[in-house]
Amino acid sequence: MATHEEISASLQSFCEGYKKNSKLELMNRDWNRVIIIKASDIDSQHIMTLRNGELAVVQGVSDQNPDLVVTSDSETLADLFYGDITPTEPYMNGTLVIQGSEDDIVRLDFISLMIWGE
């Protein structure tokens, strides 16, 4: 089981990876989204916000309605945002649950692919 801090660190790592790729900022400049990341086995929640191509992550509960809700066990979330596993495998076996439009889900996977590679 991963800790809340480990999930926070993985999300920071994800953010850094995003910022290093200038193409991502350009490609997502029209994709303004609020994404909630929730651990199912520990008390941990983060809000990832994409606005005008810029990505930011904060801890805590969101006061606005999200576009996407990403829920999984803490271990999967930490591995996922560090890029040690692809989202597809836990998604296909049901460990990773994502609520939101299919296009948004695919877009999030594309971003992960561009940050971490295959």
């Binding site: 193409k23 490609m27 692809t86 495998e89 296909m92 695919v106 996977d109 594309f110 561009m114 295959e118």
Partner: peptide, 25 residues
Amino acid sequence: SRFVYSSAREHVLPPVFSKISLRFF
């Protein structure tokens, strides 16, 4: 096409099928 893409992402099909358009996602 989504099935082919996700299969490539989980390494069930060759990685060439997971290539994405940088312009249109």
